[in-house]
């Protein structure tokens, strides 16, 4: 359970598996969406499951890449390499 932040800052956690093609793509896609829409302020934590596999249990991660939006509410999960920027943006911006 991610602690809910009182401020409206966008806090994201991206789970990847090393330098696999989807992992690399997901990271670059996410950075691009954030730069375009959330430049004002966001926090991004990247978890490499090849390094820290035990952290997957925290957010019940099954597939990689998985992006978890922890705040603001509602929390949301996206799976895949985030190639659909429009979908990523609308999901993260949803209130």
């Amino acid at each position: 359970m991610a602690p809910r932040s009182l401020d409206s800052i966008l806090r994201l956690r991206l789970y990847i598996a090393g330098r696999s093609p989807n992992s690399v793509l997901a990271e670059s896609n996410l950075r691009a969406v954030c730069a375009a829409h959330f430049a004002a302020g966001h926090e991004l934590e990247i978890v490499d499951l090849l390094q820290n596999s035990e952290l997957a249990a925290r957010d019940r991660v099954i597939v990689t890449p998985t992006l978890v939006k922890m705040s603001p509410a509602p929390t949301q999960r996206l799976i895949g390499n985030l190639s659909d920027h429009q979908l990523v943006f609308s999901t993260l911006a949803a209130e």
Binding site: Y15, I16, A17, G18, S20, N22, S23, L25, A26, N29, L49, L50, S53, E54, A56, A57, R60, V61, I62, V63, T64, P65, T66, L67, Q76, R77, L78, I79, G80, N81, L82, S83, D84, L87, V88, T91
Partner: peptide, 28 residues
């Protein structure tokens, strides 16, 4: 037991793979 049921609330945004899960399972 690993619950690997994808949630219907999850938004699919592009191709994904199981390497993360396998990494988790390897550790376990």
């Amino acid at each position: 037991f690993l619950d690997a049921k994808l949630s219907s609330a999850d938004v699919a945004a592009g191709d994904f793979d199981l390497s993360g899960m396998l990494a988790v399972l390897a550790g376990k």
